[in-house]
């Protein structure tokens, strides 16, 4: 973990509420090894009110360009300020934080389920699985077509299935309604997105006796295990989702009765 200034290389508005911000270390140092599932804490500049950093998961690491991709959803003033940072400006970032998804050692059928901006770490994970020689499937869900982000990036890594609540892209409904879940059996499922979606995915995985990891987005202050605010109830007691997570195996959680 360290605190570092990053230069914004590019800042692209992907849709009505999400920006893809690509950053590189301001001191031109090489990015350290980072793993899918890990996140960063971004300092919010130029805000009188916003106080805490904003936790953002790592969307991708481009080693050749020495760039880290951050997919940011404009939720409130903090994330809006971050999204207003133009190319050439600096973002102060604590990184890399948290644990990461487990990477399988043997070939299998893997499904990566992302909901809205929660799909962000799935791109990094998909790339890692690809590098291991695996062919992951992706299942992306959103309210509408415009909420499905980075579709071509995902398609470059594997087969992509989509659901939208209004039916504007892929099958109509929630991710757990997608027909691929009836047709195919997976060896392992990874998911990140809104909690109701993750709970539904976890229940599907559990009932099919499929291993499953979820990446939590609990509210946090510090991001490195000091404030004890982002706790999740687990079989091992209250754990910090920033240091013991954000990735948890569903067997550790209390989501399934």
């Amino acid at each position: 973990m360290k605190v570092l200034d990053f230069t914004v290389r590019s800042n692209e508005q992907l849709n009505y509420q999400n920006n893809l911000i690509k950053v590189t270390p301001a001191d031109n140092g090489t990015l350290p090894e980072m793993s899918p599932g890990q996140f960063v804490q971004i300092l919010v500049n130029n805000s009188g009110n916003v106080f805490l950093r904003r936790p953002i998961s790592i969307n991708l690491v481009d080693k050749e360009k020495n760039e880290m991709w951050l997919l940011v959803q404009r939720v409130g003033e903090g994330t809006r300020k971050i999204c207003e940072t133009p190319a050439g400006e600096t973002l102060n970032i604590i990184f890399p934080l948290g644990n990461s998804f487990s990477i399988p050692q043997e070939e299998g059928k893997f499904l990566l389920v992302g909901g809205g901006v929660g799909a962000a770490p799935m791109l990094f994970l998909g790339k890692k699985l690809r590098e291991k020689g695996f062919s992951p499937d992706f299942l992306l869900g959103g309210r509408s077509q415009r909420d499905i982000l980075q579709l071509s990036d995902f398609e470059a890594l594997g087969t992509v299935y989509c659901t939208t609540e209004d039916g504007s892209l892929g099958e109509k409904g929630f991710v757990t309604h997608h027909s691929v879940l009836q047709k195919s059996r997976y060896d392992f499922i990874y998911t990140c997105g809104p909690k109701p979606m993750m709970v539904a995915v976890a229940k599907y995985a559990h009932s099919n006796k499929t291993g499953c990891e979820v990446s939590l987005e609990n509210l946090m202050a510090c991001g490195f295990g000091a404030c004890l605010c982002c706790i999740e109830k687990t079989t091992r007691g209250n754990l910090c989702s920033c240091t013991d997570g954000p990735v948890f195996n569903i067997n550790e959680l209390t989501w399934i009765d």
Binding site: F51, L219, C229, I231
Partner: peptide, 23 residues
């Protein structure tokens, strides 16, 4: 002590509220 239930934190203008509860 297990501390209090989640959520335990709320950001406020130039500050934060916590209710960790001595975990």
């Amino acid at each position: 002590r297990q501390g209090n239930d989640y959520p335990r934190m709320a950001e406020t203008p130039s500050g934060m509220l916590n209710s960790v509860g001595l975990q």
